[in-house]
Design a protein around this nucleic acid. Sequence first.
DNA 1: AATTTAGGCAACCGCCTGATG
DNA 2: GCATCAGGCGGTTGCCTAAAT
Length: 234
Amino acid sequence: MTRTPCCEKMGLKKGPWTPEEDQILISYIQRHGHGNWRALPKQAGLLRCGKSCRLRWINYLRPDIKRGKFSKEEEETILKLHQILGNRWSAIAARLPGRTDNEIKNFWHTHLKKRPETCRVRHVSASYSCTQASSSKGVLVPPMPQSVESSSATNFGLTGKVLMSTANEGLPPRRYVATVDSGFHHGAHSYDASGETLGGHRANKISEEMEFWYDLFMKAGQPPQGHGNLGQIA
DNA sequence: AATTTAGGCAACCGCCTGATG
DNA sequence: GCATCAGGCGGTTGCCTAAAT
């Protein structure tokens, strides 16, 4: 399908924003909100595409943005959530008020990624090797066949199995279903193991996913001693 | 002091999904 | 059901600055 690019090249500015442009965008949004990002720059008198305006507002100009160094607590939160969610930056950002997905992503790539312990886990256990190719995709490539613990589940005192289907032989598991009976919570939940399988609009789904694990953890107060069963579904 | 290198971060790009006509 | 639009996401790029030589 062919689409008109968001930013028509004709006359639209790219690159760093000037303080004047920032001011125009801020005052426009304060007065009118941002109902339609595509129409906004025209109405505000900015020579930018809507996407650029949105990004600038979300990542930099929003009044509730917290700037400056990440605290130790924030670092740890990012590390923990990244173990559970992988590169779902928007989902991680949802747990860190005032921080943007872009900021967290940058922080991860410039600080946390270098730490040896972060190359150990994603959604599956340390028994998986972390290759350069797989880690850059936010996915671990498992050996075959599998019966492993989920690191995220293990963090909550859960264990389970990853059942590989023959159709996916040699490929990383793409989706899991976790059934949980911890004494605090009983139910089933599914999540994607690969950042590639979910396109845009991931935040809500992932947030729900995160809520599930987070609530489970919080209800327990400490890692619950239950059993899980992680089985891949096609 | 001048030049090179590396790190950090803002911004862009391409793709995906849900909504709408 | 199909085509298109708009918003949103993660990956990547490239500029700027500080540190090293």
